[in-house]
């Protein structure tokens, strides 16, 4: 069996602000890390591998050349292969263009039965890329997987968490699943794997390697949505700030609650 895991590099800190005067984004440092949900996607792949014979895991990411570091992390955790898809023509890609690019990469890789993605990323928080990749590949997807029940020859049995209920579904390969945080305990990258993989060269794929080479379908050109403006969240102008000793503060809270008739 061949498994593809889609992973992403995200900002390590969520402390991003916009300067109200200049409109410039201010990021707290340039630190990056692997999207936390993707660690669970990788661990899921390694566990499926341990349940089935002859299984290979191929981790892929889309991003600038520096995004290779998340692929290295995946290799040191347990992935067999890793591919970066990178091209300046992918700049400005929204969900549709990102999912389309990744689906083209997956078609380029060609051999796969199962694709595993994290439920969402911590920078976009949309949870849309996984389902859209599946649609572009015309394969089924199962979101929010919280447990892999069984892996059979031609199908996989999973339990998914919806708002007020869980579903147990059996889905035929090839298919895509997105996994919840916490369905397993992701392993750490190991020194042993690092030594094993030290001569491995991460593959890089650009638009020229893809079947669809039309630049209109990638990056900003291939993105139906457009960000017009970014702005800081609105503030209350009537906000009352209360300072003082904890005695005074607790008294104020009681007064506010009494005034508004909650006490």
């Amino acid at each position: 069996m061949n498994i593809i895991t889609c992973i992403k590099q995200v900002p390590a800190s969520s402390k991003v602000e916009v300067d109200p005067e200049t409109g410039v984004l201010i990021r707290d440092g340039n630190n990056v890390k692997m999207n936390p949900y993707d660690l669970y996607a990788l661990e899921t792949a390694y566990q499926v591998k341990s349940m089935s014979e002859e299984c290979r895991i191929h981790s892929v990411t889309m991003g600038p050349p520096s995004a290779k570091s998340v692929l290295e992390e995946a290799l040191y955790m347990g992935s067999d292969e890793a591919t970066l898809i990178s091209d300046r023509r992918f700049a400005g890609a929204d969900v549709l263009a990102t999912a389309y690019t990744l689906s083209q990469l997956i078609e380029h890789i060609h051999d796969y039965e199962l694709i595993i993605c994290g439920k969402q990323t911590t920078d976009g928080d949309t949870a849309q890329v996984g389902p859209e990749i599946a649609e572009f590949l015309s394969i089924p997807h199962v979101p929010y997987v919280k447990e892999i029940i069984d892996v059979k020859d031609k199908t996989i049995l999973v339990r998914s968490a919806y708002d007020d209920y869980d579903e147990l579904v059996e889905v035929a390969f090839p298919c895509l699943i997105t996994v919840e945080k916490g369905l397993n305990v992701p392993r750490l990258p190991s020194y042993k794997r690092r030594i094993e993989k030290q001569d491995y060269k991460i593959k890089t794929v650009t638009m020229r390697n893809l079947k669809d080479k039309n630049p209109d379908n990638y990056g900003l050109n291939g993105s139906p949505t457009q960000v017009d403006e970014i702005f800081p969240p609105t503030k209350r102008t009537d906000s009352i700030k209360i300072e003082g000793s904890s005695d005074e503060l607790s008294k104020s809270i009681v007064e506010i609650l009494q005034e508004s008739r909650f006490l």
Binding site: V18, D125, T225
Partner: peptide, 20 residues
């Protein structure tokens, strides 16, 4: 006009779909 938090931070984005 679609407004949502963006870039995983304390900012909001105005998004539209101008030609689809």
């Amino acid at each position: 006009l679609q407004i949502r938090p963006a870039f995983g931070g304390n900012i909001m984005a105005k998004i539209n779909t101008p030609n689809h």
